[in-house]
Simulated scan of single mutants.
Amino acid sequence: MENKMTAVSLFTGAGGMDVGFERAGIKVIFANEIVKEAAETYKANHPRCNIVNDDINNVIDTMDQYRGVDLVFGGPPCQGFSVAGKMDPDDERSKLIFTFLDVVEKVLPHVFVMENVKALGKLDKWEPVREKYIDRARKLGYNCAPFILNATEYGVSQKRERVFFIGIKDNLDPFFEHHMNDCIDKQKNPAPVIRELLASLGKAGTDKNPNTCTAKITFATHPVMRKSPYAGMYFNGQGRPMNVDGYSNTLPASMGGNKTPLIDEEYLYGNETEDWVVSYHKELLDGSIIPEFKEAPSRLRRITINEAVRIQTFPDDYVFCGNKGKIYTQIGNAVPCKLAEAVAKAVVAYLQEQN
């Protein structure tokens, strides 16, 4: 039996990335997560892995013991770079991508994979940070490049675009980026639409799909209109309606209250032939209805934890710890398991080709 590749997981969260890397045949031997509930979730699902619930800055000095593992991977908090956030380069969280490289320097793995928001991989604003990151990796002996992927192309029913910085140690391949892109492309696997993905769960309030978000849905008195019924802001809070005949938008870490996406229960699981939001949007557009602050019909509701778990491609039986709000946050913060799996399999394939 061949020996499994070993890995260290950083900024682990609930373990979405770890699930993906394990599916690619990689054994995680150490994980680090600062949030207590997320660390408990990780432990419940990965009992054999040593998880340390602490600030990464407090564990760096102990990382020498893992020198020589095959991989270091993780997704440092991205709020500092996020278009949805303040995009502040001085945000403490923006510095954690370099803390990630501090660990790489201690461990000197054969490969590292760092996930972050698309903006860090693409926006001109972050070019100096990107260059600094790749330059530091180069000085540590890594051939490193960013790869921007859309989760929907890798089996995830969610329009979530992320950058993965992949670094290979002592790699002299002049066409590294081109060859790695080929390996990633081979992992493409179209995702089912939301309706197909969630069909077997059934209506909220059943054993398979408990109703976990009770945040009321009321109409916005000043709706923000867009061409698409799924793009504007027609309800209180920032929970957008979800197009169940397509893909969900990125599930946010702020889910749990009125920022939780909403669906039309009867259109998804019942006999209705049109999404209520679509007809409401039409009426708003043609002026045949005047919005007022009242509750939306009961067929509209927030997505449940179990639905969010599926959209992030966690296994249905994955155990989450903490209260409902903390669980929604862990799910929204995670790297979708199938996206991580595609990246991990591509890295493994690339290494085999190089050998």
Rank of each mutant, 00 (worst) to 15 (best):
T260E: 06
V348Y: 01
K208I: 13
T12I: 07
N181K: 15
V69F: 02
V59F: 01
H110K: 15
P128N: 02
Y267I: 13
K86T: 14
I311K: 12
V103D: 05
M87G: 14
F293G: 14
H179M: 00
E115W: 02
V156F: 08
E292L: 10
F176S: 08
A14S: 14
G332D: 03
S157E: 13
P261W: 01
G325M: 15
V83K: 10
C337L: 02
L262P: 09
K27D: 14
F98K: 04
D64R: 13
I148Y: 04
V348P: 09
E153P: 06
F314P: 13
L108S: 14
K159E: 07
V244P: 13
K122W: 12
N323L: 11
K186A: 13
F176M: 02
I134K: 07
K282H: 13
A31T: 06
D264T: 12
Y133F: 15
I289G: 02
A346V: 07
Y230S: 00
N171E: 15
I51H: 01
E341F: 03
V309W: 11
T304N: 00
K186R: 09
Y42L: 02
K125W: 09
F165K: 00
Y267W: 09
N181T: 12
V278T: 15
R138C: 03
S200T: 13
H222W: 00
Q187H: 04
H179C: 00
L300G: 05
Y142Q: 10
I134T: 15
V278F: 10
E37R: 07
A199S: 05
E353R: 09
A39R: 04
M87N: 13
R310Y: 08
N150F: 09
S279E: 15
K169L: 12
M242W: 01
I311T: 15
L140G: 13
H110V: 15
D316P: 00
I311C: 08
R162P: 08
I184H: 09
T12F: 02
A84C: 01
S279H: 10
I194P: 06
F176V: 04
V309S: 14
I166A: 04
E153D: 13
E341I: 11
D90S: 12
E295Y: 12
D245K: 01
P109G: 04
A253I: 14
G332F: 04
N258E: 00
T99C: 11
L172H: 15
D91V: 03
I166M: 05
D317F: 05
L284Q: 11
F219I: 08
R136T: 07
A346I: 11
N323D: 15
V343N: 05
D245C: 02
L351A: 04
Q187V: 04
A199Q: 06
V113A: 10
T12V: 10
F235Y: 14
D264Q: 11
D88S: 08
V347Q: 01
K4T: 12
L284N: 14
A119Y: 06
G121E: 07
Q312D: 06
L120K: 01
